[in-house]
Amino acid sequence: MNFENIILQVEEKVAKLVINRPKKLNALNRATLEEIHNALQACKINEDVKVVVITGAGEKAFVAGADIAEFANYSVGEGKDLAAKGQELVFDFIANFPKPVIAAVNGFALGGGLELAMAAHFRVASTNAKLGLPETSLGVIPGYGGTQRLPQLVGKGRAMEMIMTAKMISAEEAINYGLVNHVCELEELEGKVNGIVQKILNNSLQAIESAIKAVNDAYVDGVNGFESEIDAFGKAFGTSDFKEGTTAFLNKQKPDFK
């Protein structure tokens, strides 16, 4: 599969998806969003892929935002369509992806870039990372889930302040806010993420898929997350991974999940 704006590499069960527009600080345009979706679709059906890591090309930016030049002259209808299709094809698609998705934030993560990182299941940032939602400084609001996911991660008050002031926060502030899980030096970022990935790969990816859905269900209107958990917990008893995991535990062995 050939791409112009991203790079997709699959190695040892891990798909590395790199936003590759360094001259634009990896800004998102429609073409890039479509390529991200197509790459993730390929990862979803590829049984060799167990975990996805999303990052940006270069050392300056994860994704510095949306490509403003592309939508500066959009109408009301075009703007709404931009947000709706972007959320469906990429941001919600990532949030509900059945395999773990980790954002390796290696620089600026602003606007759509922070929204992309927040859609991932969790985030690891380098010390040079700057994160924010500056949309109100452009006379618009976050349109790729930022007004919804940021409060879930940092709380309503902090989210309101970040959106209203359009300010950037440092990686250290981001970890204090709960916006990222870990912070490390830029040259250590890949190794840090790989270490987490290896821990994930030791566990039942079938169980992890069920856990992703159960956690997400807690944030869906009209869905009882506790009921989703109970249902998924019960179904786990009928899987080969449950048999392997419990048998290995009782025999004091390391499980070999298929």
Rank of each mutant, 00 (worst) to 15 (best):
A109T: 07
L114S: 09
L114H: 11
L116I: 00
L116H: 04
A117V: 06
A119Y: 06
F122Y: 15
V124E: 02
V124I: 14
V124S: 00
A125E: 01
A125K: 02
N128K: 11
A129G: 03
L131R: 05
P134Y: 01
E135V: 00
E135Y: 00
T136E: 00
G139W: 03
V140G: 03
V140S: 10
P142D: 04
G143A: 15
G143K: 04
Q148K: 05
R149Q: 04
P151V: 10
Q152W: 13
V154I: 14
K156W: 02
E161R: 11
M162P: 09
M168N: 14
M168C: 11
I169Y: 06
N176F: 02
N176H: 09
N176R: 11
V180H: 06
N181H: 11
E185L: 12
L186A: 12
L189G: 01
E190C: 00
G191T: 07
G195N: 13
V197K: 07
Q198P: 03
K199P: 01
L201I: 06
S204C: 15
Q206N: 14
Q206R: 10
A207D: 12
E209A: 15
I212Y: 10
D217P: 00
D217C: 05
D217R: 00
V220M: 05
E227W: 01
E229S: 14
E229P: 00
D231N: 15
A232S: 15
F233Q: 12
G234P: 06
K235P: 09
K235Q: 14
A236S: 13
T239D: 09
F242A: 15
K243D: 12
A248H: 06
F249Q: 03
L250C: 04
N251C: 12
N251E: 14
K252R: 09
K252Q: 11
